[in-house]
Design a protein around this nucleic acid. Structure first.
Lengths: 236, 236
DNA sequence: TCCCTCTATTTCCTATAGGATCTTGGAAAT
DNA sequence: ATTTCCAAGATCCTATAGGAAATAGAGGGA
């Protein structure tokens, strides 16, 4: 998909300034550089990014969809408040519905799924080990955390891609930002990272066995365990 | 300068120009006033609606989310092509997943759901009868068709509202535009309208019985019947 | 001390202008 | 006749400017 080497005849910088502004603001929000409830002034953002307010305005419209920012009709944008209990429960229910259905649909195309899913599994396992090593030393480098999150997301996205349903895939992407934000609070000990890797392997094995129901069940258990670990951490 | 202090309905106009532009363009698209593939020039739209390009641009970003328009990065917007077979199947699968899950969740709040759902059911039944009457006479007034669609949407939205899950509700809304566009092709004979009304009543009865599984099953059958009627029509 | 009011600054929102790019039409050359 | 090239028009994209509303803060009165 990303054909870098050839000099840009057409597809390289084929995305307007609006998209780059969107990526930058999204990064700011996901990194937690701004605190919840803080105002996101369009003019100020435009000055910070050294662009005009117009593309910033378009990017903010796009960001509304992610749930990371809230808009009040003539009073501007704000960083969305952190997810509290009820909202978190709804997010998990929605994610559970999507992941289970995606696994069910993807089981029809197991042959196309398995190679790339195994690759993603190994990638995730490697990142898990790196996290565990660092956690024993006490330090938590941000770059490693990001790499781990990416590998986890990659694993799940493979299944959604194999589901062959663009709408379900889009729904998962639309929840992605909030899910990512929630995930940041989950990694607390090496136990969680290790368990997630084990559950991922169980999912792959279930797919490989050809039993669709087993794959769906493994996925359901994985998400429910993620939920359990999440609420356990937030309570501490 | 002291302008006229007309504050009669001032509080209601709490939404910017962007939202009104969005509503207007959405209406154009849903009414089928523009053919698929046609270009949607921002400047031209701005002149037609007598506004500046900026709010039109924001509305178009919002419309991307509905799937009714497509954007090419430096070449403008186009009306999305009509849904072909594969895409239609995916849309139904996604809708089936959402409606089934919403029914399952809503069954927990049956007491709050039933009164409003019964009201929506009667409304839908009345609109169905009006459609059937007119269909016997051969004429199909557009206003009645719209009213029927609205009553059908109202029925389903009641269940999503009772599900208590804002994310699932948002997903359904995001599919709403495409679903609406698809629905327009379904009404062909009085049989379909009557059957939909019967199935709606079966759903309400299942909810009223207190059997959650029965409600889910009734909903699943309804959606699958809608799918069957839809593909039957598109084949003709 | 508390509250109200009024002002000033900030910010949102829309309009207008200009540069860069794409499309379209016709004319010229093979 | 078909293809290529070029120029004019239209369109997208971004920047700048100005009006309207809202927030913050100071000052006066109870």
């Amino acid at each position: 998909m990303t054909s870098l080497p050839i000099r840009g005849v057409g597809e390289l910088e084929r995305r307007g300034l609006r998209d780059r502004v969107y990526d930058r603001i999204l990064e700011m929000l996901l990194e937690g550089e701004v605190e919840p409830g803080a105002r996101l002034s369009i003019d100020t953002l435009a000055r910070q990014l050294d662009v005009s307010p117009t593309p910033v305005r378009e990017a903010m419209v796009q960001l509304e969809r992610t749930g990371l920012v809230t808009r009040e009709a003539l009073r501007g944008y704000r960083v969305a408040p952190p997810l509290e209990g009820e909202q978190l429960a709804e997010l998990f229910d929605a994610r559970l519905m999507l992941e289970v259905e995606a696994a069910r649909l993807a089981s029809r195309h197991v042959d196309a799924l398995l190679p790339s899913l195994r690759k993603a599994l190994e990638h995730h396992a490697r990142e898990s080990e790196r996290i565990v090593e660092r956690l024993d030393q006490g330090s938590v480098p941000l770059s490693l955390t990001r790499a781990y999150f990416d590998s986890d997301l990659e694993f799940h996205r493979e299944i959604f891609a194999a589901s062959g349903n663009r709408y379900i895939q889009e729904m998962y992407d639309s929840l992605g930002a909030l899910t990512h934000r929630m995930r940041q609070a989950i990694i607390r000990g090496p136990r969680d990272v290790h368990e997630a890797a084990v559950e991922h392997r169980a999912i792959v094995d279930a797919f490989a066995s050809g039993d669709a129901d087993a794959a769906v069940l493994a996925m359901r258990r994985h998400i429910e365990n993620v939920r359990a670990r999440s609420v356990g951490d937030t309570a501490s």
